Amino acid sequence: MDWYPLRLTTPVMPHVFGGHAIAERLGRTGLPPGRVAETWEVSDVDGQAAEVNEGPLAGRSLRSLVAEHPEEMMGRGWRGARFPVLTKFIDATRALPVHLHADDETARRLEDQPNGKTEAWHILDARPGATALAGVKPGVDADALREALSRGDFDTVMRRLPVRAGQTIYVPGGTLHRFGPGTLVYEIEQTSNIQQHAMRWRMEDGAELDPDEWRRNIDMLIEEWRPEPRPDFQPGLALRAGDDVQRVICCASPYFALERWRVAAGTTARHALPTATILSNVGGPVRFHAQGWSDILEPARTLLLPAALGEVEFTGPADVMLGYLPDLRSDVLDPLAAAGYGPDVIAALGDTVPR
C-alpha cells in the first residue's frame, strides 16, 4: 500500500461548557454553528470512531486500518484491537463538570472496559486568573469527599491550581479533576470515553439529573476514585532539534507522549516516525512533506501520520503538537538523559517508568 498522511473525520461535541474559542482563537473553519466544546481529532472510541476522509483510503475506518495493517500504521511490532491514543481540542469557555476517569484495573473491574483513561492537558490559552482542580487534598477520605461533592463544595476537598498557557498536566486515571472557565486545551489520552461526574446536570445538554441518578453517580465516582495522585502543571523539557527549532516534550507515559514544536519562518524541521504520530496544528497554516506528499495543514486541523511514512517534514513558521505511543526508553528517557536532565526532572513529565 502507498501510505500517505491521513485526514480523518473529527466528531464535534456541543457540550454545555463549550463556546467559540476553537474557531475564534485557533482559526478552525468549518465548525457547525452554536457552541463547540470538543473536537475529537483522532478517535477510535466506539460510536465516535474516525474514518479517512481524503485520498485512496477515503471511507476506511481507523480501526480497520489498525487491525489490517498494524505495523505499517503503528510500527515496532505493535498489535492491538484499536488505535490506542485519543486527542481533542477542548474549549472550556465555562467550567467542565468535576469528574474522573477510571484507571485500567478499575475500568476492567467496574466498567467492563479493556482499559481506563489516563489523560494530559496542554494549555493553549487561558484567561488571567484561570484555575483548574486536580486531585484531592491530603487527608481527605471517602466520607469527606462524598459530603463535599453532595454540597457542591469542591474547594473544601480538591486542590486548585493556577493555569498558564504553555504548561501541561498529566492526570492519571482515577484522579478527580476539572478545568475551566476560560481555558483552551489540547488533550491527549487513552482511547476511552468512560467517566463519572459529580454534577446535578448533564454535560451534554444541561438537563437536571434525577436525584437518585445523581446520588448513584457520586457513589460510582467514589468507587472509582484514587486519592493518591496530586498532579501539577509543568513547562515540559526542551530538546535541541536544530537551529530555529524549539522542541519541548510536554508529557510522557506508557500510554502516550506529547511534544510541542515551534519552527521559525523559512526553517524546515524533520521528525522520524517510528510509530504513528498525530500532528495537530496550533498555529497558522503549515507546509508539510511526507514520502512524496506535500500539502498545507490548516489551523486547528490534524493529520495522522502512519509509521510507514518514516519521516515528516514541516516548514516554518509552524507551531504544532505531536502525539504518539512511545517507546519510553528510546523516545523519551534516553534523549532527555543525554541532554542532561536528571531522573527526578524527567519523572515530572508523568509516568516515565517503562513497562
Rank of each mutant, 00 (worst) to 15 (best):
L6I: 03
R25T: 12
T29L: 12
P33S: 13
A58I: 06
R60T: 14
A67Y: 10
E68A: 14
G80F: 12
T87G: 13
T87K: 07
I90D: 05
P97C: 14
H101Q: 14
D103G: 12
R108G: 07
R109F: 04
Q113W: 10
G116C: 02
T118M: 01
A120G: 01
L124T: 07
D125A: 11
V136K: 08
K137N: 05
D141R: 07
D143P: 01
R151S: 09
G152A: 04
R159S: 15
R164I: 12
Q167I: 12
Y170M: 10
G173K: 06
G173A: 08
T175I: 11
H177Q: 12
G180D: 13
G182Y: 00
T183S: 06
V185N: 00
S192R: 11
M199F: 15
R200H: 13
A207K: 15
A207Y: 08
L209E: 03
R215A: 03
R215S: 14
R216G: 09
R216I: 06
D219E: 05
L221W: 07
I222R: 04
E228K: 00
P231Q: 07
D244K: 00
I249D: 03
C251F: 14
P254V: 03
Y255E: 14
Y255F: 15
E259W: 01
W261D: 10
R262P: 02
T267Q: 00
T268Q: 00
L273P: 09
G284F: 07
P285E: 12
R287V: 15
H289M: 12
A290T: 03
Q291R: 15
W293N: 05
S294P: 04
A300R: 05
A300T: 09
P306A: 01
E311Q: 14
L325N: 04
S330V: 10
D334N: 11
A337R: 15
A348S: 15
A348N: 10
G350Q: 02
